[in-house]
């Protein structure tokens, strides 16, 4: 399983989770875990997803999130989970 972390931060607005989740669903990307909080008006969400269902290059998936970044004025960052596993688990 190729797991990635998607972190979404920016000013809170209606429909952020829905937009991101819908886009991921369209690409057949399964969401494995979500944590989300509002810190001082700032929306902060971290999602762990499984990229294997998408059958797309990493860069293409990242690119597909670009319209949401622009529309919602959010920072959306995707990176492979392996780096966290490598650093924090033996």
């Amino acid at each position: 399983m190729t797991k990635a972390l998607i972190s979404v931060t920016g000013l809170d607005a209606t429909g952020i989770i829905a937009k991101v989740a819908t886009k991921l669903s369209e690409m057949n990307i399964n969401i494995l875990d979500i944590t989300q909080t509002i810190l001082g008006g700032y929306f902060t969400m971290m999602m762990v997803v499984d990229l294997d269902g998408a059958h797309m290059e990493f860069a293409a998936i990242d690119e597909a999130l670009q319209p949401i970044r622009e529309e919602m004025k959010m920072s959306i960052h995707m990176q492979r989970m392996d780096i966290f596993d490598a650093m924090h688990r033996i």
Partner: peptide, 11 residues
Amino acid sequence: MIETGEILQTM
């Protein structure tokens, strides 16, 4: 599962 604190530390 990796904890949020660990993710933030790496970042």
